[in-house]
């Protein structure tokens, strides 16, 4: 064993650089992106810009964290945007029950969506994209019907607290929410048996089954977590805006979430969930959106820029 370790020293420099880029492409890209904006985007290097980025990235981050587990298991969940919407509208509608019940009802609705999706995937062994596609359409539909496709305004300072509160007058509550969410999902992925099972199933499903992993429960667990996080994202967004709009909330969120996970380095074919990578991925996507905005570039162009950066990131960390 000692002998093989010594041999590694003879590996030459170029290979080390390749490995380095392969491993750290996402943070490196993030640093480049930030440096570029600090120099070229007016007012970018400003504390308020940072708070803004952090507030706005919360919803993407929460859905992307769930998506990290889903993708690591070899699946995909394109219904998360719609789950955000249904949580948002039902939670807002339930405000009559009180603030805490309203939040819990929103989360419960999301979790039930996840349970349903997970059950179908696990029980009938249908590919996740085929299952979540009609879910994306159907759940959005139900969300819209719930309030006749109307914007639902409300006035509840206590509810809005979870989207607008600022610690020490400056630090948005979202920062705390994100730290907790990242810590929890990181813990699940890296310290819990559940995380091992997710990775094993994504890497080699047949072997996982023969090893005695309860694939049925793990799949359901994954989609419940993913949907619940998406629902939570919907609730926070609703609280921030003091309004629920089932037509708009979470629209195309699944794409941002998937892109962030891919950029963050979780293999799209399943395998090790890279939770920290996902955080970097979300930051990259959000910074592009904000920077494009601040430079008064039209939204449509921002999509092109986003696409280019995503491709760059994927190229940088491609395998060989």
């Amino acid at each position: 064993m000692e002998a093989t370790k010594k041999m590694t020293t003879s590996t030459n420099q170029t290979i080390d650089w390749k490995l380095f880029f392969n491993k750290y492409a996402t943070p490196v890209l993030l640093v480049i992106l930030i440096s570029f904006n600090v120099v070229f985007t007016p007012n970018f290097a400003n504390i308020n810009t940072m708070w803004n980025i952090l507030i706005q990235m919360t919803t993407i981050l929460l859905t992307a964290l769930g998506m990290t587990l889903v993708i690591a298991s070899g699946g995909i969940d394109i219904s998360v945007g719609s789950v955000m919407a249904i949580s948002s509208i039902i939670s807002a509608k339930s405000l009559g029950l009180g603030v805490l019940p309203a939040i819990l009802v929103g989360l419960l609705v999301a979790a039930v969506c996840g349970l349903f999706i997970g059950l179908i995937i696990a029980k009938f062994k249908i590919q996740p994209i085929i299952v979540t596609l009609p879910m994306m359409i159907g759940i959005r539909g139900i969300a819209q019907v719930t309030n006749d496709s109307q914007l639902l305004n409300f006035d509840s300072p206590a509810y809005s607290f979870i989207g607008t509160y600022k610690f020490a007058g400056n630090i948005p509550v979202q920062v705390l929410i994100m730290i907790i969410a990242v810590a929890v999902v990181y813990f699940i992925s890296n310290k819990m048996a559940f995380g091992r099972y997710v990775q094993a199933m994504g890497d080699n499903y047949r072997a996982s089954r023969l090893t005695g992993i309860n694939t049925f429960l793990v799949i359901i667990g994954i989609y419940v977590i993913s949907s619940a996080l998406a629902g939570f994202a919907g609730i926070i967004e609703t609280a921030r805006l003091s309004a629920a709009d089932a037509n708009a909330i979470g629209k195309l969120m699944e794409l941002d979430a998937i892109a962030a996970v891919a950029v963050g380095g979780t293999p799209m074919t399943g395998g090790r969930p890279n939770v920290i990578g996902t955080v970097f991925g979300v930051l990259i996507i959000q910074i592009i959106t904000v920077a494009v905005n601040m430079n008064n570039i039209p939204y449509t162009y921002s999509l092109v820029v986003k696409a280019i950066v995503i491709i760059l990131a994927l190229w940088a960390r491609r395998n060989k």
Binding site: R196, Q199, A200, R206, A207, S208, I213, R272
Partner: peptide
């Protein structure tokens, strides 16, 4: 095809069933 979890470590592969 049915035995190893290729990208997981020796450690994780050995302990997968006993977790």
């Amino acid at each position: 095809i049915e035995g190893i979890i290729p990208n997981m470590s020796v450690k994780e592969n050995i302990t997968l069933a006993i977790l």
